[in-house]
């Protein structure tokens, strides 16, 4: 799995550089995110700009991250294309996550919430 992390203050930006976020990498993603949470990250932006397709395993792994940070943290999502947005809508996860067109807007909102 190819992904990058950037820590800006209390916010950890995770950019997944994969075309497909599916069952093949969902477990690896969860493990990587658990490791970040163990190191103290609680506020995440999951940037899916490069992702062209997501299945329910990929989506479920983002839900896992939200459940792991619980009410002490938050998970924002950015950069969803139409297909990825479709998955969030079909499962009604668009009501669970705050979704932003790009990582910059997500960061401004999350950072404001933390001030």
């Amino acid at each position: 799995m190819n992904f990058e992390t950037e820590i800006k203050g209390k916010v950890t930006i995770v950019t997944l550089n994969e075309k497909r976020f599916d069952a093949k990498i969902a477990v690896t993603f969860k493990d990587a995110m658990k490791s970040l949470i163990d190191k103290g990250s609680l506020f995440f932006i999951v940037n899916l700009k490069a992702v062209e397709f997501i299945d329910s395993s990929g989506l479920g792994s983002i839900v896992t991250v939200l459940k792991l940070v619980g009410r002490k943290g938050d998970v924002f999502v950015s950069g969803l294309n139409d297909s990825v947005m479709q998955m969030f809508s079909l499962t009604r996860m668009d009501r669970v996550f705050k979704i932003f067109p790009n990582v910059e807007d997500a960061f401004v909102e999350l950072n404001n919430n933390l001030e």
Partner: peptide, 11 residues
Amino acid sequence: DIDNLPEGGMG
């Protein structure tokens, strides 16, 4: 209800 969000079983 974050604790009870589905992580699987959506297929």
